[in-house]
Protein backbone atom coordinates (compact mmCIF):
# COMPACT_ATOMS: atom_id res chain seq x y z
CA UNK A 1 0.00 0.00 0.00
CA UNK A 2 1.33 3.33 -1.01
CA UNK A 3 1.49 6.25 1.39
CA UNK A 4 -0.75 8.44 -0.76
CA UNK A 5 -2.74 6.74 -3.50
CA UNK A 6 -4.65 8.39 -6.33
CA UNK A 7 -6.95 5.92 -8.05
CA UNK A 8 -8.39 6.86 -11.41
CA UNK A 9 -8.94 10.44 -10.21
CA UNK A 10 -10.79 12.90 -12.43
CA UNK A 11 -11.76 16.44 -11.64
CA UNK A 12 -13.91 18.86 -13.53
CA UNK A 13 -15.35 22.25 -12.64
CA UNK A 14 -18.90 22.20 -13.92
CA UNK A 15 -18.58 21.18 -17.55
CA UNK A 16 -14.89 21.99 -17.76
CA UNK A 17 -12.71 18.93 -17.34
CA UNK A 18 -9.35 19.58 -15.71
CA UNK A 19 -7.84 16.26 -14.74
CA UNK A 20 -8.70 12.88 -16.11
CA UNK A 21 -7.88 9.33 -15.10
CA UNK A 22 -4.92 9.95 -12.83
CA UNK A 23 -3.32 6.92 -11.20
CA UNK A 24 -0.42 7.75 -8.96
CA UNK A 25 1.13 6.13 -5.92
CA UNK A 26 3.37 8.24 -3.69
CA UNK A 27 5.64 6.05 -1.60
CA UNK A 28 6.56 6.86 1.97
CA UNK A 29 9.72 8.94 2.25
CA UNK A 30 9.98 9.74 -1.43
CA UNK A 31 10.35 13.14 -3.01
CA UNK A 32 7.96 13.33 -5.93
CA UNK A 33 7.99 16.26 -8.34
CA UNK A 34 5.02 17.09 -10.56
CA UNK A 35 6.20 18.88 -13.67
CA UNK A 36 4.10 20.48 -16.36
CA UNK A 37 3.20 23.68 -18.13
CA UNK A 38 1.05 26.16 -16.30
CA UNK A 39 -2.64 25.51 -16.69
CA UNK A 40 -2.27 21.75 -16.66
CA UNK A 41 -4.12 21.36 -13.37
CA UNK A 42 -1.09 20.78 -11.17
CA UNK A 43 -2.46 22.96 -8.40
CA UNK A 44 -5.80 21.18 -8.63
CA UNK A 45 -3.97 17.89 -8.20
CA UNK A 46 -2.23 19.12 -5.06
CA UNK A 47 -5.50 20.50 -3.70
CA UNK A 48 -7.01 17.05 -4.21
CA UNK A 49 -4.12 15.48 -2.31
CA UNK A 50 -4.48 18.05 0.48
CA UNK A 51 -8.23 17.50 0.70
CA UNK A 52 -9.02 21.13 -0.14
CA UNK A 53 -10.99 19.85 -3.13
CA UNK A 54 -12.76 16.58 -3.75
CA UNK A 55 -12.36 14.53 -6.95
CA UNK A 56 -15.32 14.31 -9.31
CA UNK A 57 -14.46 10.67 -9.97
CA UNK A 58 -12.07 8.19 -8.40
CA UNK A 59 -10.56 8.50 -4.95
CA UNK A 60 -7.57 9.80 -3.02
CA UNK A 61 -6.31 7.52 -0.26
CA UNK A 62 -3.92 8.63 2.47
CA UNK A 63 -2.43 5.64 4.28
CA UNK A 64 -5.30 3.55 2.94
CA UNK A 65 -8.08 5.88 4.08
CA UNK A 66 -10.00 8.20 1.77
CA UNK A 67 -9.11 11.89 2.12
CA UNK A 68 -12.25 13.82 3.05
CA UNK A 69 -10.89 17.08 4.47
CA UNK A 70 -7.61 18.95 4.82
CA UNK A 71 -5.56 18.49 7.93
CA UNK A 72 -2.16 19.23 9.42
CA UNK A 73 -0.93 15.69 8.71
CA UNK A 74 -0.65 16.80 5.08
CA UNK A 75 1.11 20.15 5.37
CA UNK A 76 0.73 22.47 2.41
CA UNK A 77 3.21 25.12 1.32
CA UNK A 78 1.10 27.48 -0.73
CA UNK A 79 2.17 29.09 -3.95
CA UNK A 80 1.71 32.71 -2.94
CA UNK A 81 3.04 32.59 0.62
CA UNK A 82 -0.43 33.03 2.14
CA UNK A 83 0.86 34.52 5.36
CA UNK A 84 -1.45 36.43 7.67
CA UNK A 85 -0.40 40.04 6.96
CA UNK A 86 -1.32 41.16 10.48
CA UNK A 87 0.91 38.63 12.21
CA UNK A 88 4.69 38.70 12.60
CA UNK A 89 6.94 35.84 11.46
CA UNK A 90 6.67 34.38 14.95
CA UNK A 91 2.91 34.89 14.95
CA UNK A 92 2.45 33.08 11.64
CA UNK A 93 4.58 30.12 12.66
CA UNK A 94 2.89 30.22 16.06
CA UNK A 95 -0.49 29.56 14.42
CA UNK A 96 0.76 26.16 13.29
CA UNK A 97 2.36 25.42 16.65
CA UNK A 98 -0.92 26.25 18.39
CA UNK A 99 -2.78 23.80 16.19
CA UNK A 100 -0.42 20.93 16.78
CA UNK A 101 0.55 21.52 20.39
CA UNK A 102 -2.30 23.41 22.06
CA UNK A 103 -1.25 22.31 25.55
CA UNK A 104 2.22 23.90 25.52
CA UNK A 105 3.23 26.42 28.14
CA UNK A 106 4.13 29.90 27.01
CA UNK A 107 7.87 29.26 27.21
CA UNK A 108 7.67 25.88 25.46
CA UNK A 109 5.60 27.42 22.72
CA UNK A 110 8.09 30.26 22.25
CA UNK A 111 10.95 27.77 22.08
CA UNK A 112 9.13 25.70 19.49
CA UNK A 113 8.35 28.73 17.35
CA UNK A 114 11.96 29.91 17.63
CA UNK A 115 13.17 26.45 16.59
CA UNK A 116 11.20 26.44 13.34
CA UNK A 117 11.94 30.09 12.57
CA UNK A 118 15.64 29.35 13.13
CA UNK A 119 15.42 26.31 10.88
CA UNK A 120 14.69 28.52 7.88
CA UNK A 121 17.25 31.12 8.99
CA UNK A 122 14.86 33.92 9.92
CA UNK A 123 15.66 34.38 13.61
CA UNK A 124 16.82 37.92 12.94
CA UNK A 125 13.46 38.83 11.36
CA UNK A 126 11.19 37.04 13.83
CA UNK A 127 9.38 40.22 14.84
CA UNK A 128 8.68 41.51 11.35
CA UNK A 129 5.42 41.41 9.46
CA UNK A 130 5.16 39.90 5.97
CA UNK A 131 5.04 43.35 4.34
CA UNK A 132 8.53 44.01 5.69
CA UNK A 133 9.99 40.80 4.23
CA UNK A 134 11.32 39.98 0.79
CA UNK A 135 9.61 37.33 -1.32
CA UNK A 136 12.23 34.73 -0.45
CA UNK A 137 11.90 35.44 3.25
CA UNK A 138 8.12 35.17 3.09
CA UNK A 139 8.39 31.80 1.40
CA UNK A 140 10.76 30.68 4.17
CA UNK A 141 8.13 31.64 6.72
CA UNK A 142 5.63 29.63 4.70
CA UNK A 143 8.00 26.65 4.82
CA UNK A 144 8.57 27.10 8.56
CA UNK A 145 4.83 27.20 9.16
CA UNK A 146 4.31 23.97 7.24
CA UNK A 147 7.19 22.27 9.08
CA UNK A 148 5.80 23.44 12.42
CA UNK A 149 2.64 21.44 11.75
CA UNK A 150 4.97 18.45 11.97
CA UNK A 151 3.13 16.89 9.02
CA UNK A 152 3.46 13.31 7.85
CA UNK A 153 3.85 14.56 4.32
CA UNK A 154 4.47 17.93 2.67
CA UNK A 155 2.70 19.27 -0.39
CA UNK A 156 4.55 22.14 -2.02
CA UNK A 157 2.60 24.09 -4.64
CA UNK A 158 5.14 25.89 -6.84
CA UNK A 159 6.87 27.19 -3.74
CA UNK A 160 9.62 28.93 -5.68
CA UNK A 161 7.87 30.20 -8.78
CA UNK A 162 7.34 33.76 -7.55
CA UNK A 163 10.99 34.26 -6.64
CA UNK A 164 13.91 35.60 -8.62
CA UNK A 165 16.30 33.08 -10.13
CA UNK A 166 19.06 33.43 -7.52
CA UNK A 167 16.80 33.13 -4.49
CA UNK A 168 15.03 30.31 -6.23
CA UNK A 169 18.16 28.22 -6.59
CA UNK A 170 19.28 28.84 -3.03
CA UNK A 171 15.91 28.01 -1.55
CA UNK A 172 15.63 24.85 -3.68
CA UNK A 173 18.91 23.62 -2.23
CA UNK A 174 17.69 24.47 1.24
CA UNK A 175 14.50 22.51 0.71
CA UNK A 176 16.66 19.58 -0.39
CA UNK A 177 18.71 19.92 2.81
CA UNK A 178 15.66 20.10 5.04
CA UNK A 179 14.19 17.08 3.30
CA UNK A 180 17.46 15.12 3.69
CA UNK A 181 17.28 15.69 7.44
CA UNK A 182 14.17 13.59 8.05
CA UNK A 183 13.06 12.27 4.66
CA UNK A 184 9.44 13.23 4.93
CA UNK A 185 7.26 12.31 1.99
CA UNK A 186 7.14 15.32 -0.31
CA UNK A 187 5.13 16.22 -3.38
CA UNK A 188 6.39 19.35 -5.10
CA UNK A 189 4.89 21.12 -8.08
CA UNK A 190 7.09 23.04 -10.44
CA UNK A 191 7.54 24.13 -14.02
CA UNK A 192 11.32 24.32 -13.71
CA UNK A 193 13.23 21.35 -15.10
CA UNK A 194 16.43 21.91 -13.09
CA UNK A 195 14.52 22.35 -9.88
CA UNK A 196 12.69 19.11 -10.60
CA UNK A 197 15.88 17.13 -11.18
CA UNK A 198 17.62 18.68 -8.17
CA UNK A 199 14.87 17.62 -5.80
CA UNK A 200 13.09 14.58 -7.23
CA UNK A 201 13.31 10.88 -6.68
CA UNK A 202 10.70 10.65 -9.40
CA UNK A 203 9.58 13.32 -11.84
CA UNK A 204 5.93 13.01 -12.87
CA UNK A 205 5.26 14.85 -16.10
CA UNK A 206 1.75 16.10 -16.81
CA UNK A 207 0.19 16.34 -20.24
CA UNK A 208 -1.54 19.57 -21.19
CA UNK A 209 -5.08 20.32 -20.11
CA UNK A 210 -7.98 20.16 -20.43
CA UNK A 211 -8.25 16.52 -19.37
CA UNK A 212 -4.65 16.62 -18.18
CA UNK A 213 -3.19 13.38 -16.99
CA UNK A 214 0.15 11.83 -16.22
CA UNK A 215 2.25 11.68 -19.36
CA UNK A 216 5.43 10.06 -18.15
CA UNK A 217 7.29 9.23 -14.99
CA UNK A 218 11.07 9.37 -14.77
CA UNK A 219 13.12 8.04 -11.88
CA UNK A 220 16.04 10.30 -11.03
CA UNK A 221 18.87 8.13 -9.76
CA UNK A 222 21.36 10.90 -9.01
CA UNK A 223 23.23 10.59 -5.68
CA UNK A 224 22.17 12.65 -2.67
CA UNK A 225 22.73 15.07 -1.08
CA UNK A 226 22.52 17.08 -4.26
CA UNK A 227 23.71 20.58 -4.91
CA UNK A 228 23.35 22.50 -8.12
CA UNK A 229 27.10 22.49 -8.57
CA UNK A 230 27.52 18.77 -7.99
CA UNK A 231 24.66 18.06 -10.39
CA UNK A 232 26.24 20.02 -13.21
CA UNK A 233 29.35 17.89 -12.88
CA UNK A 234 27.48 14.60 -12.82
CA UNK A 235 27.60 12.76 -16.18
CA UNK A 236 23.96 11.54 -16.00
CA UNK A 237 22.51 14.96 -15.27
CA UNK A 238 22.22 16.03 -18.90
CA UNK A 239 20.58 12.78 -19.92
CA UNK A 240 17.83 13.32 -17.32
CA UNK A 241 17.50 16.89 -18.35
CA UNK A 242 17.22 15.96 -22.01
CA UNK A 243 14.59 13.36 -21.24
CA UNK A 244 12.40 15.81 -19.38
CA UNK A 245 12.90 18.56 -21.93
CA UNK A 246 11.98 16.25 -24.79
CA UNK A 247 8.72 15.44 -23.10
CA UNK A 248 7.94 19.11 -22.48
CA UNK A 249 8.86 20.08 -26.03
CA UNK A 250 6.25 17.73 -27.31
CA UNK A 251 3.58 19.57 -25.34
CA UNK A 252 4.87 23.05 -25.94
CA UNK A 253 2.49 25.73 -27.21
CA UNK A 254 -0.41 23.91 -25.61
CA UNK A 255 -0.33 21.01 -28.11
CA UNK A 256 -2.00 17.79 -27.23
CA UNK A 257 0.40 14.92 -27.57
CA UNK A 258 0.86 13.68 -31.12
CA UNK A 259 0.70 10.17 -29.76
CA UNK A 260 -1.83 10.33 -27.00
CA UNK A 261 -4.97 10.52 -29.05
CA UNK A 262 -8.26 8.81 -28.35
CA UNK A 263 -8.68 7.24 -24.93
CA UNK A 264 -7.01 8.67 -21.87
CA UNK A 265 -3.49 7.29 -21.93
CA UNK A 266 -2.13 5.20 -19.12
CA UNK A 267 1.21 6.52 -17.90
CA UNK A 268 3.23 3.47 -18.94
CA UNK A 269 1.68 3.45 -22.39
CA UNK A 270 2.62 7.05 -23.03
CA UNK A 271 6.13 6.44 -21.83
CA UNK A 272 6.44 3.64 -24.33
CA UNK A 273 4.94 5.75 -27.08
CA UNK A 274 7.56 8.49 -26.79
CA UNK A 275 10.50 7.01 -28.60
CA UNK A 276 12.51 10.23 -28.55
CA UNK A 277 12.44 10.40 -24.80
CA UNK A 278 13.33 6.74 -24.44
CA UNK A 279 16.20 7.16 -26.84
CA UNK A 280 17.57 9.98 -24.77
CA UNK A 281 17.63 7.72 -21.76
Amino acid sequence: MAFLDLKNVSKSYGDTPVLQGIDLAVEEGEFLVLLGFSGTGKTTLVNLMAGLEMPTKGEVLFKGRPVTEPGPERGVIFQNYSLMPWLTVNGNVGLAVDTMFPELSRAERAAKVAHYVGMVGLSHAAGRRPAELSGGMRQRVNVARALAMDPEMLLLDEPLSALDALTRGNLAEEIEKIWEADKKTCVLITNDVDEAILLADRVVMMTNGPRATIGKITEVGLPRPRTRKALLEHPDYYAYRQEVLDFLEEYEHGNQSKHASGAAPKPKAVAAETPKAVAAE
Binding site: A50, L52, E69, P70, G71, R74, V76, F78, S82, T99
Partner: peptide, 12 residues
Protein backbone atom coordinates in the same frame (compact mmCIF):
# COMPACT_ATOMS: atom_id res chain seq x y z
CA UNK B 1 -9.23 32.32 -0.33
CA UNK B 2 -5.64 31.23 0.20
CA UNK B 3 -5.79 32.31 3.82
CA UNK B 4 -9.02 30.38 4.25
CA UNK B 5 -7.20 27.33 2.86
CA UNK B 6 -4.43 27.87 5.40
CA UNK B 7 -6.98 27.88 8.20
CA UNK B 8 -8.47 24.67 6.82
CA UNK B 9 -5.12 22.89 6.67
CA UNK B 10 -4.38 24.12 10.20
CA UNK B 11 -7.83 22.89 11.23
CA UNK B 12 -8.48 26.06 13.19
Amino acid sequence: KDLVNVSKVLKM
